[in-house]
């Protein structure tokens, strides 16, 4: 059975003018279907304002859809009574690292989730230890979050979610405010969790390089899922991605341009290594 199964999800924001009168409706999710299996790494792509963050917030019931069905870990997310069970099994990491760290000491922040769940003290210590270990932040356990780099702060936030022992982590643009080193750190950390702890991963982003490793990619535009498939299937459609204000990795784009110029290259090249290999074998074949 699917860990997450969404059918025809619909969500509208009500826009009000200054006096509070309803000005109009903004459809943020429009008939969205989503399937995620346990242990999968799924990426959701989309430009700013495409509805991808709104979708993420539905997955742990920070928002509730008006129409459609959503099942998370076998529980009905349309039923408000399941909110704590769902939030426990599906953790969430947000974009701004500062605005999600509650405590002034790293380990105390990681403990925040388990404390809310009423976990006994001894068990909290074990979980804090384990989850800091899993993101490589044990060394910083008694530091203040303010002294950490952006990437380190995000890893603390991830540890904070891991300490709740969720089956799935939803990351809502976790790297948008980080520099390239921070981005790499965070990605490596979450991918390791996916591989080693079999945590289901849902990564929301607009950086194409980050989704190359994903099992499945969804592309969103104006509230709808407009493309889905493996990274290779998605990235072979350069023109469509551009239409949705997205990008492809530089190697993919170059391969695409070369193909357009008449070279015989396979579709769906994702990395420069693949492109180099394809070009070299062609060169030798000549």
């Amino acid at each position: 059975m699917n860990f997450i199964k969404a059918r025809k999800l619909k969500f509208e924001y009500i826009r009000r003018d200054e006096e509070g009168n309803v000005e109009g409706l903004l459809t943020a999710l429009d008939s969205v279907d989503l399937d995620v299996r346990q242990g999968e790494f799924v990426a959701i792509l989309g430009h700013n304002g495409s509805g991808k963050s709104t979708l993420a917030k539905h997955l742990n019931m920070l928002l509730q859809a008006e129409e459609g069905t959503l099942w998370v870990d076998g529980k009905d997310a349309m039923d408000g009574g399941n909110v704590w069970d769902i939030r426990k099994s599906t953790g969430m990491v947000f974009q701004n690292p500062d605005n999600q760290i509650v405590a002034s000491v790293v380990e105390e922040d990681v403990a925040f989730g388990p404390e809310n769940l009423g976990i006994p003290t001894g068990e909290i210590w074990k979980r804090v230890e384990n989850s800091l270990q899993s993101v490589g932040m044990v060394r910083y356990r008694s530091h203040s979050p303010n002294k950490l780099s952006g990437g380190q702060k995000q890893r603390v936030a991830i540890a904070g979610v891991m300490a709740m022992e969720p089956k799935c982590i939803v990351l809502d643009e976790p790297t948008a405010m980080l520099d390239p080193n921070g981005r790499r750190e965070v990605l490596e950390a979450v991918q390791a969790l996916n591989r080693e702890k079999e945590v289901t991963l849902i990564l929301i982003t607009h950086y194409m390089e980050e989704v190359v490793q994903a099992d499945k990619v969804y592309v969103m535009d104006s509230g709808k899922v407009v493309m889905q498939g493996t990274p290779r299937e998605i990235f072979s459609q350069v023109d469509r991605l551009k239409k949705y204000r997205l990008d492809v990795p530089q190697a993919t784009l170059l391969a695409y341009e070369l193909r357009k110029a008449g070279m015989d290259l396979p579709e769906g090249i994702l990395t420069w290594q693949e492109l180099a290999e394809a070009l070299c074998s062609q060169y030798q074949a000549r």
């Binding site: 969430m92 403990a111 809310n116 769940l117 909290i124």
Partner: peptide, 27 residues
């Protein structure tokens, strides 16, 4: 205000629901 909003959401996502039933890491 933006930070306050974000933080409230992040706390909710981590199952915060007031002091009732909370345990402590460092009682």
């Amino acid at each position: 205000f933006r930070r306050a909003n974000d933080l409230a959401m992040a706390m909710e996502a981590r199952c915060y629901r007031g002091g009732v039933g909370r345990t402590k890491m460092k009682p």
